[in-house]
Amino acid sequence: MIDTAARAEMVRTLMLLEFVFAMLPGFYGVFYILGQVLHRRWLRLLGYGFGAAQVGVVLLMIRTGYLEPFWVRVMLVLTLAYVAMPPALWALAKAIHRENTDTLQPS
C-alpha cells in the first residue's frame, strides 16, 4: 500500500489528466462539426488541434505509470475511437442524407 501523500499525488494527477482527456475530444468534436457546418476551415483545423492534444494527453497519462497495463490498452482503444468519432459520424450523416433523400442537402 502506498502512503497517503503518494496516493493524493496519484489521484490529483490522474484526475486532472482525465478531466483534460475528457474535455479535449469534446472540443475536437464541437469545433470539427462547427467547421463543417459553417464551412470554416480554421474551425476544423482547431478541432484537429484538440484531437491531437487528446492523443498527447493520453500518452502523458500512460507515462505517469499510474495505469495498469490493462487500462493502458483500454485508454488507447478509447482514444482511437474518440479520434475517429466526429469525422466518421459526419461522413455517416452525409451518406445517410444522400441515400435517403432526393432533395439537395448541404455538403
Partner: peptide, 8 residues
C-alpha cells in the same frame, strides 16, 4: 452531428 447538419 445530426442537429447541426440539418440546422446548418
Amino acid at each position: 452531428v445530426h442537429a447541426l447538419y440539418d440546422a446548418g
